[in-house]
Amino acid sequence: MSSLMSWLEPQEQLETREEQLRKQINALSDAERKVFYHEQSKLIKDPDNYAVLNYFFLGGVHHLYLGRYKRFIAELVLLIIAILSFILGGSGLGVLILIALCGYELPQLFLSQKIVRQYNEAISRELYEQIIHSGSPHRDHH
C-alpha cells in the first residue's frame, strides 16, 4: 500500500484487518502463539517514538525507525539541498524544498498513531504467515 493511500485508509478498515488477524492468531496452537508473540514483541514499533522522531528531528529520521531507508535518504538529501541553497544564496529553492518537506511531514506527525498501527499490522501479518507456512518464523536458522 502506498504511503498516501495508507494515510487515506478508513480507520474501520484497519480495525477490521487487525481484528481478523487477532482471530487468526488465536486459532494458532499454543506453541505457535507463543512463538508469534515472542517474535512480535521484537518487531512492533511504538507510535509515540515515531511521532517524537518526526517532531524533533529533521531529515526523515522517523523513517529509519520503521526501516524505510529509501524515504530517509530522499528526505535527508532534500534537506541538505535546501540548506546548501540557503548557504549559497538560492533561498527560493531552499524555501520551496522546505515547504514541500513540511507538507509531506506534517500529515505523518498528525497521523503517526495510524501509520505505526498499519506498520505493526503488516509486520504482524507477515510474521503470522511465516508461522503458518513454516511452523516457525525463522525455520532456515534452525
Rank of each mutant, 00 (worst) to 15 (best):
11 Q>V: 01
86 F>Q: 07
29 S>D: 01
60 G>L: 07
6 S>M: 11
65 Y>K: 06
20 Q>W: 12
122 A>F: 05
108 Q>T: 02
27 A>K: 12
35 V>M: 08
17 R>N: 06
15 E>C: 02
8 L>Q: 10
142 H>E: 10
24 Q>R: 14
98 L>D: 08
41 S>Q: 08
87 I>W: 10
27 A>M: 09
41 S>G: 04
116 V>M: 10
129 E>L: 11
33 R>M: 05
29 S>K: 14
100 A>P: 02
97 I>V: 12
136 S>R: 13
93 L>F: 13
76 L>D: 07
139 R>V: 00
108 Q>L: 09
81 I>Y: 08
32 E>R: 08
83 I>P: 00
141 H>N: 12
104 Y>F: 13
98 L>Q: 13
133 H>G: 04
137 P>F: 06
128 Y>I: 02
99 I>H: 10
66 L>I: 00
17 R>G: 01
95 V>W: 15
19 E>L: 08
95 V>H: 14
123 I>N: 01
65 Y>A: 00
88 L>Q: 10
87 I>L: 09
25 I>Y: 11
124 S>P: 08
125 R>L: 01
9 E>H: 07
6 S>I: 02
65 Y>Q: 06
65 Y>P: 00
79 L>D: 08
2 S>M: 10
107 P>S: 10
97 I>D: 05
120 N>R: 11
105 E>S: 13
21 L>N: 12
40 Q>N: 09
54 N>A: 06
40 Q>D: 05
130 Q>K: 11
56 F>H: 05
47 P>F: 08
36 F>N: 00
80 I>G: 07
57 F>K: 11
67 G>Y: 13
101 L>M: 07
133 H>R: 14
47 P>Y: 07
122 A>C: 01
92 G>Y: 15
7 W>Q: 08
27 A>D: 13
11 Q>R: 15
45 K>Y: 04
82 A>E: 00
124 S>Q: 11
51 A>I: 08
36 F>V: 01
